[in-house]
């Protein structure tokens, strides 16, 4: 069933016609062609599809697109400034070696982004809590924690 929704996506108002059975992830990737958000499992078990909705990290693969109506959605494409102005988290992930294959990275950064929305000065426990739903098979997580800490200091 086609339905109209209105929401804010990466700072811009969007009005779109959607199929009511779509997930947010499907809408982002297949309709809007925003390929930065990844599908790692489709069942909310890996966190690769994490986006930030109303300042909270959410698995977009399980999120009905109809529920974003009236909400504020942020994806990996929406957190850096114009041109080369990367978000401090993006810079820190690069510089601290937190990126290997990189497939978990957008979701990981969005989870960390939501953490900073919630806490100005998170400790290691907070960081672990924020990314415990983001699986990474390459890094062993150590440098990801380093990067989030570095971003915290650099903010």
């Amino acid at each position: 069933m086609k339905r109209e929704i209105k929401f804010k996506l990466n700072g811009e108002e969007v009005t779109a016609e959607v199929e009511s059975h779509w997930t947010l992830l499907y809408f982002l990737r297949e309709v809007l062609k925003l390929k930065g958000t990844k599908e790692g499992c489709g069942y909310g078990e890996c966190g690769a599809c994490t986006v930030v909705i109303d300042k909270m990290a959410v698995n977009s693969c399980l999120f009905p697109v109809m529920e974003v109506n009236g909400k504020d959605v942020l994806t990996i494409e929406g957190i850096s400034g114009p041109g080369e102005a990367l978000h401090p988290l993006q810079k820190a992930f690069i510089e601290e070696g937190a990126v290997q294959c990189g497939f978990c990275t957008p979701g990981m950064i969005m989870s960390a982004y939501a953490l900073f929305e919630e806490k100005k000065n998170p400790d290691d426990e907070d960081i672990k809590e924020a990314i415990e739903g983001n699986l990474c098979r390459c890094t062993g997580y150590v440098k990801i924690i380093d990067a989030i800490n570095a971003a915290k200091r650099g903010k």
């Binding site: 909310g44 966190g47 994490t50 909270m56 990290a57 959410v58 698995n59 399980l62 999120f63 989870s111 939501a114 809590e129 924020a130 990314i131 415990e132 739903g133 983001n134």
Partner: peptide
């Protein structure tokens, strides 16, 4: 329970 993303919704 679950993960942060799960607990949020």
């Amino acid at each position: 329970l679950g993960s942060k993303q799960i607990r949020n919704v």
